[in-house]
Design a protein around this nucleic acid. Structure first.
Lengths: 208, 208
DNA sequence: GGGCAATCTTAACAGTGTTAAGATTGCCCC
DNA sequence: GGGGCAATCTTAACACTGTTAAGATTGCCC
């Protein structure tokens, strides 16, 4: 039985988000229920409505938390990668896939309908800051000739699409990678990003 | 009021799937309800259970229909593209993105949890046949030197990931493309697939 | 035509999101 | 410190959902 201490919980909002984050891997993003979360938090089943307008608001808060976790994973990858911008770029992509395969429910929570739209300003700021900094580095590398002189936005969008799509395909089982096999997924991600590096059109022999 | 003719409907199964296909763009994949579909079909709210074990089974049948629609779009693209395998490859990718942006609810219905697993054998066969034929052509083109001599599976997986991820990102609004703007999406898809063609690593000047 | 099995309906249960009304409590201000 | 206000939480209810069991209706085959 969930212990119900005082009439006023005082930290219900955070507790609910924490409960959602905890229950997420167990029941999946679509299996979350406001009432169940309230029970888990030791509170009446209608209590959440004093902190969230509706279920989607709670899901948005949950998704924000997931975005932060993903961002941490990417930042860790970037730190480990060092200053070689090519390596940095590839390892970020691999880390993206790793996160998705290691935490598929978290990943799915971020693509629930209408969740990306109402991302909290603070989270959006952090995410944007990361993208801006990495974008800056990529542009510099491009100027140095380390990256092909392609339209920048298209280049970034292509890279983002690649790892996002790969993550989705692996999670959905449209790939030989078994669910949860992070290391295998990482190897596949390395190969796929390498293909993206050299391109599908043939290069003259012996060149890169 | 929905007209309820006879006690036995006789084509309920197909009617339900058709109703789902029809309601899909209006209410979205997550907004579908078995009871609402039964009402729409002019039948009692428990009738669907004599044709589908549970809601997921209906959703799987719906997803199968969506796979066929997507497949038709890809086949049309392939026919229009002709025999230039590079063009064929790129246009297939663009058609994939077009379909997703034009029918986002259909696209989402295909990635509902646990739906890809129970795809009907006949649909799976058709999809596999398409992939096999296109794979064969790609291998031949690669042997001719029209496609880079990369590990084949990685190459295909990368291309699939690219267009799937791009479609997802556009639908989710993570892109300048406005929802439903198919032509804009197609232009973006052309650019992104072009990036994939030449690769992110620089090539010597004047070469392709 | 009789009987059987498929098909559909009615009725009910448990669970959900959501809202309205009232109880409880922290907290600010006099 | 005490009074009152507003935030917080509870209880109760409504409408909806997926799902199941029991019975009614009908097509169909022998």
């Amino acid at each position: 039985m969930t212990t119900r201490r005082k009439y006023h919980h005082r930290h219900l909002r955070d507790t609910l988000v924490a409960a959602a984050l905890e229950a997420l891997p167990e029941v999946g993003a679509e299996g979350l229920s406001l009432r169940a979360l309230a029970r888990r938090a030791g509170v009446s089943e209608a209590a959440p409505y004093h902190h969230f307008a509706d279920k989607d608001a709670l899901l948005a808060a949950l998704a924000a938390e997931c975005f932060l976790l993903l961002l941490e994973a990417l930042e860790a990858a970037v730190r480990e990668a060092g200053d070689d911008q090519r390596r940095r770029f590839q390892l970020t992509g691999i880390a993206y896939v790793r996160f998705a395969v290691a935490h598929p429910a978290h990943f799915r929570a971020m693509e629930l309908p209408g969740v990306a739209a109402r991302m909290p300003a603070e989270v959006k700021r952090k995410v944007d800051a990361f993208y801006r900094e990495e974008g800056r580095r990529m542009r510099a590398a491009q100027k140095q000739g380390l990256i092909a002189p392609l339209p920048f936005d298209g280049l970034i969008l292509a890279a983002t699409s690649l790892v996002h799509g790969l993550a989705r395909l692996i999670i959905d089982g449209a790939t030989p990678v078994k669910p949860g096999d992070v290391e295998h997924a990482a190897r596949v991600a390395r190969e796929v990003t390498a293909v993206f590096g050299v391109g599908v059109l043939p290069r003259p022999a012996g060149q890169l």
